[in-house]
Nucleic acid binder design. Structure first.
Lengths: 230, 230
DNA sequence: TTAAAAAACTTTCTAATGGTAAGTATTTCA
DNA sequence: TGAAATACTTACCATTAGAAAGTTTTTTAA
């Protein structure tokens, strides 16, 4: 165990509190005082563990993106075929413990930090890259390499688009709608002759079932929250 | 002419200055002092014409979105067929006087204001709706109504996704790449048997040529800047 | 033309904010 | 045990958003 285990714990607590603050008050309404208040400590403690507001937001950003990638990893554990792994990626990105109005709005708030924060930029680019490369890897089973790249890129941009839309709209967000839109895209992008429609449907069902157990479990939620924070 | 023509002019100047500030310093780095400095006036003037920072940002947001819709309107003037109008929408959304790193980054910064600002939300939803409805109207020529809606929705989400990506990345943004990705999507979504490939290509060429003259013209740029601000 | 009403602009002040610095208390470990 | 590191606190400062009250300029209408 690191000598700075308290620091690790505090940083986790504080970035969680900051995440809540962003959800509640937006980025502009999130002050160090409020973050401290939510975490039950003084502003001084916040600045003791994070050198400034930018690095606090960076941790929040990492947390919010980490939640997603941990979900993909979790669902990958159960996915055994390309069909299933493809759905694992999609379902992980839109499962309703993560893809809901509050979180999407927070994400939209947070990305405004990206253009002027090199570290956030690195995180975001890495996440996009990983997502795209995961998608490509599975799509290669259904399309030639060059086309697979295009399709993967297309789907990953689409995922971002759906997230932004969800964050911009005031209305509630539907996990099912988003997943349906992804299905529509897949059906258009991947050639039906290379796909086994039955297998495809079965894969989606399986992964959605697995997700509803695995991603909702307290154990997973706890683990991700612990893992995610530096 | 409105009795408040000075007010109109000032609001235009100030929201332009604020837009520049957001580009330069990001949303969090944009202060009323800096906005005033860029506009060559004191902070007091800024607050005299905008009741608070939120309403200033709202005007900036309107400006940035208005730039887009004015471009669509401008290109529509030259578009005579569904093919051409479809490309008019796409080219307007990605032409490089608007779709460039600075503007995309500013847009990404600005949308963080949306979740906690009802007015910005209204603007954003209206723009999305209009864009989607424009797309749908043209796509209906190539697909049955129900499918056209899905395709239009898909393309408009994709446009948002490409904009976000462009704003998140540090590297320069390529208008051509974005347009190519839209073309890829169109080719996958619209049935090739319902489309005249030659006409399609010709339409794209025509609109791109028109855009490079029309959207770059000083007259258009000036007009939009004047029109856009309330 | 001129008085007064309205709008444009300035100045001054305040509470809140991000951040620093200089402390004290607690933990760790040699 | 005792000193070095870490956790936390407090007091402070410069900047910020915004309010309030003032002054100048422009409109309007008698």
């Amino acid at each position: 165990m690191r000598s700075s285990s308290i620091r690790t714990i505090r940083r986790a607590e504080l970035s969680k509190a900051a995440f809540e603050a962003v959800i509640k008050f937006g980025l502009r309404g999130t002050t160090l005082d409020k973050v401290g208040e939510i975490a039950g400590v003084s502003k001084g403690v916040v600045l003791h563990h994070f050198k400034d507001k930018s690095s606090l937001l960076e941790a929040v950003f990492r947390r919010s993106n980490g939640l997603l990638s941990e979900s993909v990893v979790e669902l990958y554990r159960f996915a055994e075929t390309p069909y299933e792994r493809l759905w694992a990626i999609i379902v992980a990105n839109f499962f309703d413990t993560i893809f809901n109005r509050r979180v999407c709005q927070a994400w939209v708030s947070l990305i405004s930090e990206v253009p002027h924060n090199k570290q956030c930029q690195r995180i975001q680019i890495a996440c996009n890259q990983r997502n795209q490369s995961n998608l490509k890897h599975e799509i290669k089973h259904f399309l030639p390499k060059a086309e697979a790249l295009l399709a993967a890129r297309h789907l990953s941009v689409l995922i971002d688009g759906l997230w932004v839309r969800a964050g911009l709209l005031s209305s509630n967000v539907s996990s099912n709608n988003a997943i349906s839109e992804m299905e529509y895209a897949i059906n258009k992008l991947l050639p039906s002759d290379a796909m086994d429609v039955e297998k495809h449907k079965a894969a989606r069902n399986k992964i959605e079932t697995v997700a509803s157990i695995s991603l909702s479990s307290k154990a997973f939620q706890k683990q991700t929250l612990e893992v995610i924070n530096c």
